[in-house]
């Protein structure tokens, strides 16, 4: 399959899953009623369900999924390590810590953008620490160890904030939020996440040639005219922006950034540059599909999206580690 055909196929898949996400829900509307309400409705219940609940949910699913897929592919390309992933290496949990601090201190209530900005700050600090500790030549082990340490620290600090929280109900709510979900999100969330998400994509997507050249290692890439320092900063800020924005509205959703590049890599001839747009589309498709699945598996209970992706993703991660070990 040519690269263009692959992008078209993934694009169509995203479109189909986006439509399915709009048509599936507890309100039990028929597909034709749903679409009529979405397009021509005038304030009746069906139109409200479609426009205020399902549409933002589907949009966020696509946005967050694309961010995770893109960030995973970009981090893997830069670190030349197939185990890099924003969730696994502590970026998502650090963003969540930032968001929890914003929620607990009331900053988020006082100033709407405080939530995504604090999540962004958390993600930014995490990526900087990771690059400093593991670096591009640190190898898989250093990266994963640094990621585990960072996740543990961010988790512990999050627990501390919850521990000291005076209001147990608010704490429980935050715990649920952290599991990662797209349930009951509104357009407020879309507008909150959209600007930073787009900035992140705009920073990461032009890195195609630099990431391709890095296949030959840093020295060769630099000699091919790639400005590595600039590439690193762009990547860090880009990943932090779109992952931070995603975590701010959807909580920490793990493993999407790991699975999607892994599945798509053989289809793009392993070229790290081509993997970027493919993984963005693949991530959107996967998260939309997972969000449909949580609604279908146990419709009466609110199964969290992040729980599902972790249950599917963690075994795959184990498989990857096993394969990496076998290759050494």
């Amino acid at each position: 399959m040519s690269f263009r055909a692959l992008l078209w196929a993934l694009g169509l898949l995203v479109a189909a899953l986006f439509a399915a996400s709009l048509l599936i829900g507890p309100a039990g509307l028929s597909p034709s009623d749903s679409l009529a309400a979405l397009i021509a409705g005038r304030g009746e219940a069906a139109a409200l369900v479609m426009r205020e609940i399902r549409l933002p949910r589907a949009i966020l699913g696509a946005l967050v999924g694309a961010s995770l897929g893109l960030s995973g592919a970009a981090l893997q390309g830069y670190l030349r390590n197939p185990l890099a992933e924003p969730g696994l290496i502590g970026v998502s949990s650090s963003a969540a810590l930032g968001a929890v601090i914003a929620l607990q201190t009331g900053l988020a209530g006082a100033f709407a953008l405080a939530l995504p900005l604090m999540a962004l700050a958390g993600a930014l600090i995490a990526v900087l620490i990771l690059l400093g500790l593991a670096g591009p030549r640190g190898g898989a082990l250093t990266l994963i160890l640094a990621g585990i340490a960072l996740s543990a620290l961010a988790g512990a600090l999050t627990s501390l904030v919850l521990n000291l929280s005076p209001n147990p109900y608010a704490a429980a709510e935050i715990v649920f939020w952290m599991m990662g979900s797209l349930t009951d999100r509104s357009f407020t969330h879309v507008w909150l996440a959209l600007p930073l998400t787009l900035i992140g994509w705009a920073l990461i997507l032009p890195l195609v040639r630099g990431l391709d050249a890095l296949t030959l290692g840093e020295d060769a890439a630099a000699a091919l005219g790639v400005r590595l320092a600039r590439l690193r900063v762009t990547l860090v800020v880009g990943v932090a922006a779109c992952v931070g924005a995603g975590v701010a509205v959807a909580g920490a959703i793990g493993f999407v950034g790991l699975i999607v590049p892994h599945l798509l890599r053989p289809l793009v001839g392993a070229r790290p540059g081509r993997l970027l747009p493919a993984s963005a589309l693949g991530g959107a498709a996967l998260l939309l599909a997972a969000d449909i699945a949580v609604r279908l598996i146990v419709p009466e209970r609110d199964l969290k999206l992040g729980v599902l992706t972790a249950i599917v993703g963690a075994p795959l991660f184990l498989h990857l580690i096993y394969k990496t070990r076998a290759a050494q």
């Binding site: 030349r80 890095l214 296949t215 030959l216 290692g217 020295d219 060769a220 000699a223 890599r265 001839g269 392993a270 070229r271 790290p272």
Partner: peptide
Amino acid sequence: PQMREIAWPV
């Protein structure tokens, strides 16, 4: 470079 690096199975 002396270090012969090929990071991905391209």
